Measured scan of single mutants.
Amino acid sequence: TLFEALYDYEARTEDDLSFHKGEKFQILNSSEGDWWEARSLTTGETGYIPSIYLAPV
């Protein structure tokens, strides 16, 4: 399942991933609670993103 960003997000740590509204992600690991490891389909970068900023596509 792909997810789309509902809002912009600016990374706060080196493990976080910055993204823009409308960016799409492949989720790599969603077992860490509210922060999911994801790969951006726009940039190819991976990192942790807040799941509350996402909606399934």
Rank of each mutant, 00 (worst) to 15 (best):
W36L: 06
E14R: 11
A5T: 03
L28Y: 06
L2M: 10
T43P: 00
L28F: 07
P56R: 07
T43L: 02
L17K: 03
F3S: 02
L17Y: 07
D15R: 15
A5E: 00
A55C: 09
E23A: 06
F19M: 13
A11N: 05
Y9D: 01
E14N: 12
I27S: 01
E4A: 08
S40I: 05
A5N: 00
T1V: 12
L2I: 15
P56I: 09
Y53V: 06
E37Q: 14
G33P: 15
I52S: 15
F25H: 00
Y48R: 14
E14Q: 13
V57L: 11
A38T: 02
E37S: 08
Y48V: 08
T43V: 01
T43N: 06
D34K: 09
F3G: 01
Y48Q: 08
R12V: 12
T46M: 09
P50D: 07
S18F: 03
E10L: 11
G47W: 05
G44A: 05
T42M: 11
I49P: 00
A38V: 15
D15T: 14
D8P: 07
S30W: 14
Y48K: 13
S51G: 07
L54A: 03
D8E: 07
Y7G: 07
N29V: 07
W36E: 01
D8L: 03
A11C: 06
K21W: 04
A11M: 04
A55I: 14
G33K: 13
L28Q: 04
D34F: 14
G44M: 07
Y48N: 07
G47T: 03
T13K: 14
Y53K: 04
D15Y: 15
K24I: 15
W36N: 01
I49A: 05
T43Q: 02
E10I: 14
Y53N: 04
L54G: 01
Y9M: 04
R39G: 01
W36A: 02
E23Y: 05
F19H: 01
F3C: 05
K24V: 14
S18E: 03
A38W: 01
F19Q: 00
Y48L: 12
W35D: 04
L2A: 05
D16Y: 14
T46N: 05
E14K: 13
A11G: 10
S51E: 04
T13S: 14
K21H: 05
E37D: 04
L2E: 06
K21L: 05
L6M: 10
G47K: 04
V57D: 06
A38C: 10
T46A: 07
G33N: 11
G22S: 04
L28N: 04
E4Q: 12
Y9S: 03
K21N: 04
S31C: 10
W36G: 00
V57A: 08
E32P: 09
L54S: 01
A55T: 13
T1A: 12
T43S: 10
A5G: 03
S40K: 12
F25A: 00
E45V: 10
G33R: 12
W36S: 01
L2Q: 06
S30K: 13
Y48M: 14
S51V: 10
E23L: 01
F3I: 01
H20N: 10
E4G: 04
K24S: 05
E45D: 09
T43W: 02
S31W: 09
E10T: 14
G47S: 03
K24L: 15
S18Q: 04
E37V: 15
L6H: 03
D34L: 13
S30I: 11
L17V: 06
L41P: 02
L6P: 01
L17E: 01
E23F: 04
K21M: 08
S30Y: 12
L17N: 01
E45H: 13
A55D: 04
P56E: 08
D16G: 15
D34E: 13
F3A: 04
E10Q: 13
E10S: 11
R39V: 10
T42A: 11
R39F: 09
E14P: 13
L54P: 00
L6S: 04
P56A: 10
D15M: 15
T42Q: 09
T43F: 02
Y53C: 08
F3N: 01
L6I: 10
S40T: 03
S18A: 06
Y48F: 13
L28I: 11
G33A: 14
L2Y: 11
I49Y: 02
S31H: 10
K21C: 07
F25Q: 00
T42K: 13
T42L: 14
E37P: 04
I49C: 04
E4N: 04
S40H: 06
G44T: 03
G22Q: 02
Y7M: 11
E14G: 14
A38I: 06
L54N: 00
Y9A: 02
W35G: 03
L6A: 05
F3E: 00
K21P: 03
L17I: 11
Q26F: 14
D8K: 05
D16L: 11
W35F: 11
G22N: 05
R39K: 12
S51L: 06
L2P: 04
A55W: 10
F25P: 00
H20S: 14
V57T: 08
E23N: 06
E45N: 12
D15E: 13
T46P: 01
T1W: 14
I27Q: 01
F25W: 02
T43M: 02
Q26Y: 15
S51M: 10
W36Y: 06
A5K: 00
A11V: 02
T42P: 01
A5L: 05
A55M: 12
R12K: 13
P56N: 05
I52T: 13
E4V: 15
W35N: 07
Q26I: 15
R12M: 11
D15S: 14
P56T: 06
E4H: 08
T1I: 13
F25L: 04
T46C: 08
L54T: 03
D16N: 12
E37I: 15
S40P: 01
I27R: 04
W35Y: 13
Y7V: 12
I49Q: 00
A55E: 07
E45I: 10
L54M: 10
R39M: 12
T13V: 08
R39E: 05
T46V: 14
K24M: 14
L6Y: 03
Y53E: 01
V57E: 06
L54I: 09
S51H: 10
F19C: 06
R39N: 03
H20Q: 11
G44C: 09
A38Q: 00
G47V: 05
K21R: 11
L54E: 00
E37R: 11
A11Y: 02
S51Q: 08
G22I: 00
K21S: 06
F25C: 01
V57M: 08
L6D: 01
D34C: 14
D34A: 11
Y53W: 07
F19Y: 03
A11H: 06
G47I: 04
Q26S: 08
L17D: 00
I52V: 12
Y9P: 00
K24E: 04
E14F: 10
R12E: 11
R12Y: 08
S31V: 10
D34S: 10
F19G: 01
A55Y: 09
L41R: 03
Y9Q: 02
E23R: 01
E10P: 05
R39I: 11
H20D: 06
S51F: 09
E45W: 09
I52G: 13
L41W: 06
H20T: 14
L41A: 05
G47Q: 04
R39Y: 11
L41C: 10
A5C: 02
E10N: 11
A38P: 00
Y53F: 10
L28T: 06
D8M: 05
G22A: 04
F25T: 00
E45F: 11
L17F: 12
G22D: 02
S40V: 04
Y48H: 07
E10D: 10
W36V: 07
G22M: 03
A55P: 01
E4S: 07
I27L: 06
S18R: 04
K24W: 14
H20Y: 13
K24N: 05
A38H: 01
P56S: 07
Q26E: 14
L28W: 05
P50A: 09
T46F: 07
H20P: 05
T43G: 03
Y53A: 14
V57C: 08
A5D: 00
Q26C: 13
A5H: 01
L17T: 03
T42D: 10
E4K: 08
W35K: 12
